[in-house]
Design a protein around this nucleic acid. Sequence first.
DNA 1: CGGTGGCTGGGG
DNA 2: CCCCAGCCACCG
Length: 307
Amino acid sequence: MTRQAGIVAQALLVVCLLAAGDALGQSCPALDENEKAALAAEHLFGGPPSPGAILIRRGYVTEYDATRRVPRWAAWHAAPEYLMPPKRKGRWARFRTDPDVANPVRKSHYNGLFAAFDLARGHIVPYFIAGGDRDGDGQDAEIETADNLPVEDIDDACTVFEVNYMSNIAPQLHGTFNGAGGLWYALETKVRKDIVGAGRPIHIIAGSVFGDAPVRKVGPNKDIHVPHMFYKILIGEAGAVAFLFTHEARIGPKGCAPDAALESCIVTVGDIEAVTGLDFFADLGDEAEALIEDTDGRAVWQTLLGQ
DNA sequence: CGGTGGCTGGGG
DNA sequence: CCCCAGCCACCG
């Protein structure tokens, strides 16, 4: 190949990769109604916390806030068999445009935010629960055979792709929140290693909080809203424990500062409802709902940790 | 897509 | 101590 041809080939490669950078996740088989019902039943503990339209995925269920362009909440079942997703590299690492929302956020919309504001593409439903044989055909998204050849199950690959949809992403401060050393990372790590990884499956609901304070809006159209706070609720057999974290601003009287100890971020489910307007676990019925919402979060936390 | 890099915390 | 894991970023 001549030098000129080499330059042309290189340019073409770059163009193709730039186009692929905003790729759609469009190759996944659609879920039928029976599959959707089963997935909602698995992931959505106690019913949806709001009456809005929900998106049902293989690994989670979510309500996307199309106005603020971030997830409002997401709910998922975190089980030990889901802790083995393919290594997060190559196509498994790619953020994907959600084909199921209108005017979707694209990966490129976050370009430059990290350098300018330390805002990263933060997963609400984490990558590490995207594994497992979700469709029960005996094959995961990617396994190694005896011949050391990777074998792929497209349905389970879609679990991974859907976790990487940009509709599962919110702008999160990397250094002080989402990255190593941040409270969001610290809680995810505890869940992955010390709760689910220790053999105790749980249900999780997490989401964003917006209140009466100035909202930072980012992206090319300045329409991606940076949440004021984030919350996460863990539900186990002993009850629920809720965490409320300040991100850009504290809304209401609760919620810990970025440099607080993780345990000091524990609040009640009612505190999350007060600041979000959501109603969790409504399908349980008043008695069971009150029971799970009135449990001592700190005691539940210790139980989940096996202590 | 592969390669490389920064950051922090945990472990040998 | 260094090295690795898990968050990410950016480059061609």
